[in-house]
């Protein structure tokens, strides 16, 4: 089952979601931020937006950023649980987006 980060109202009704799904493009570890049709992939090793599609925090609601940053360790733990062969902490020089 995909991990879905709980957001405070009104973010879900505005269309914001953060997920780690059961089958992701695996490198590097990341969470996917959704706003309706748009998505961003945020790298969990480096905290930057993965290309493609790229992007920046300027495009994202500040409340989403705040919630993601407050739950960073939880997101890393959930990724490690789903993808034990490609853990966030597996530092090998390839982690940056």
């Amino acid at each position: 089952m995909a991990f879905v980060l709980r957001f405070p109202a009104p973010l879900p009704s505005l269309g914001w979601k953060v997920k780690i799904r059961d089958r992701e493009r695996l490198e590097p570890p990341h969470v996917t931020i959704f706003l309706r049709r748009h998505e961003w992939r945020l790298g969990l090793r480096c905290g930057t937006f993965i290309v493609p599609p790229g992007g920046s925090w300027n495009e994202i609601d500040s409340r989403v950023r705040k919630t993601v940053e407050a739950n960073w360790q939880l997101l890393c733990d959930e990724w490690d649980r789903a993808y034990p062969t490609n853990r966030v902490s597996e530092a090998d020089g390839y982690g940056n987006a």
Binding site: M1, A2, K17, K19, R21, D22, R23, E24, R25, T32, F34, R36, R37, E39, R81, A82, Y83, P84, T85
Partner: peptide, 29 residues
């Protein structure tokens, strides 16, 4: 998946504006 979730192909669905393919409880990007 690493959490042990198996895809259930009899329960195909599409969600997240086409970003996600659901196979029962299993979700693929």
């Amino acid at each position: 998946s690493g959490t042990g979730v198996k895809p259930d192909f009899s329960r195909l669905a599409l969600t997240d504006y086409g970003h996600t393919v659901c196979l029962g409880k299993y979700e693929a990007s």
